[in-house]
Write a protein that binds this DNA or RNA. Structure first.
Lengths: 333, 333
DNA sequence: CGCCCGGAATGAATCCATTCACGACGCACC
DNA sequence: GGTGCGTCGTGAATGGATTCATTCCGGGCG
């Protein structure tokens, strides 16, 4: 199509291309008369700025890349919303990529973002990506880990203390008298899962006679939770409490135990999830959970990212929020 | 910042820029020897293609824009996943925008997508956008409505028959003997809501003595569902059945009725939702719902979009899927 | 030996918005 | 009238990948 460019607008308005560009980006530098005619020309021609050209010239885009483990998980969509809000406040936008707990997809999105010259990358990592992030940084693209503390001091991160959260959840189950706890979640390669498990182990270790069994899942989804629930039902001896690595898994376990196993919750088995997603309280048995300041994580991460992108000498920061226990019927009296 | 371009790679490999470009895009046109040296140079220099330049030259991007009403709604994330899968199969990617049921944000994303010269737009519209879509089409950007049949024959759409779904849900409630039905959902400006309501009205009208009351909500969220639940509890005479415009609203209503109102579901009030999201079966009372082929909608829409983008003379198509009733405890027995 | 053919490589032109050194003009003040 | 300053506008240069008309070269064939 005979696409209209800044050039066509200039011709129509009887000014030069430079003036049109100024009208768009520095209106105060253009006389009112010219401004008016340019605006008119733009409207008549239906001109739309070509972002590719603008970006090419600028050398970087107005975009932040975000890679999450699972878009279907409300935790991550909330986080994404927080990030988006903050980005929009700075006149930028967010591209969302879903790694779906798959290293290849994760790498693919990082490639894509790099080709797009995003201003920076927020990522809840799945595979080993320290090296990859180092390369990005060398090429001028800062990265901030979200929902996971970085082990590398040179990488900023915004996370919640998952060890504390896991400990908190397990301690609560122990405190209401449970002793045989099952931790349901996976893959343990995911740091959040590993940390929550570590916290749970610590709490259990501090009580004589308390045991912790691990029931692994392939992903943190409702479907996998159901599968784990069936595994529990089939096991020789049911635990008296379940700590799920997130709420989706917890909901899957809950459904299976109650519907297929006629298990009473919390009577026979107490249950606690993680994330406190908004349907947690509407569950079959309202779900106890560990709440995280989800949107705040996203907002904070974008803030740090933009700071780093602007700074000549980035000073990495690790922000750690504290989680909060939310007790409902699934582990209540 | 001495950013490496195709130019630098060419120099390092001892070939011309054209050859490097060919090595990247038409490897079969380049001798094995050159290919090898070019690959080596790319690796050594850490060259990353600049998508902006490529896009500028090509005049269009490898991207599809998707605007949804609410990213927190699992229905839309499932749809997005379907769209993404299909897009990736065609070597393209999807940018997701969340209009959050706000016309200004919706328009903002369309502007952004247009500036990015996306290949096409998938949208679950909120406001009146027929005119806007017509303009897009004129400028060579096809649009496909998702989850909503288009009234305009020149616009393609992929949807589910929401009137039939609403009718189906209401007929089911009537069939189990309920007569005073409340439809909970809104805003009614959203076509899906309006259609489901229309279907429900039809079913109710066909039965003598059956009534339909509408309880509006400001959005299709759990929070709004809770608010509506409280409104129901406060009303003079409770309905004996609730048909919610989607599952999130249904879950909110369910929680409030049971927890705050000690209402028995389905004893006192039968309840049915819409979308059959995967936590529906794990609800306090497993939720009856109307299932849609969600991912298929996304995949199909991308297929049609790419077809239209390729065709010189696009032939708009309207695809309508049929919904399916899923009966669980909330309206069972 | 000369010519032609085809594979391989070249490099200038192109896409479009932004920038910036520079020019034009008007006004005020000496 | 001349000088200086400020406002507004100009247009060529820039950025990086792609494309395509053109050149190059070696080998095959008459």
């Amino acid at each position: 199509m005979a696409s209209i460019g800044i050039r066509g607008v200039a011709e129509r308005a009887g000014v030069s291309v430079g003036t049109v560009s100024n009208a768009l980006n520095h209106p105060e530098k253009v006389s009112a008369a010219s401004l008016g005619r340019i605006r008119e020309a733009i409207a008549e021609l239906g001109y739309v700025r070509n972002d590719a050209a603008r970006m090419l010239r600028a050398g970087q885009s107005q975009t932040i890349g975000l890679v999450v483990l699972d878009v279907r998980n409300p935790f991550f969509t909330d986080l994404a919303r927080g990030a988006e809000d903050e980005a929009v406040r700075h006149g930028m936008s967010v591209i969302l990529g879903n790694s779906a707990e798959d290293s290849a997809r994760e790498a693919g999105y990082l490639d894509l973002f790099e080709e797009q010259r995003v201003r920076g990358v927020l990522i809840s990592p799945y595979g080993r990506i320290d090296e990859r992030l180092r390369l990005l940084r060398e090429r001028g693209i800062p990265a901030v880990l979200v929902d996971r503390a970085s082990s590398d001091r040179r990488v900023s991160s915004v996370s919640v203390d998952d060890v504390a959260g896991g400990r908190m959840a397990a301690a609560h189950l122990l405190q209401i008298g449970r002793r045989r706890i099952a931790f349901v979640g996976g893959p343990v390669g995911i740091r959040q899962v590993a940390d929550r498990l570590t916290g749970a182990r610590e709490a259990v270790a501090s009580i004589d006679g308390a045991t912790l069994e691990v029931v692994p899942t392939a992903a943190l989804t409702v479907t996998e939770g159901r599968r784990a629930g069936r595994a529990l039902l089939a096991s020789a001896r049911m635990p008296d409490a379940v700590l799920a690595a997130n709420d989706l898994v917890a909901l899957g376990v809950l459904e299976t135990l109650v519907v297929e196993g006629s298990v009473r919750v919390p009577g026979d088995v107490a249950l606690i999830g993680y994330d406190d997603i908004d349907v947690a309280s509407a569950a079959m048995v309202p779900l106890s959970s560990v709440r995280q300041p989800t949107e705040l994580i996203g907002r904070t991460a974008v803030g740090i990212l933009l700071e780093e992108a602007a700074a000549a000498q980035p000073r990495p920061r690790q922000v750690v929020f504290q989680p909060e226990l939310v007790v409902r019927a699934s582990s209540g009296g």
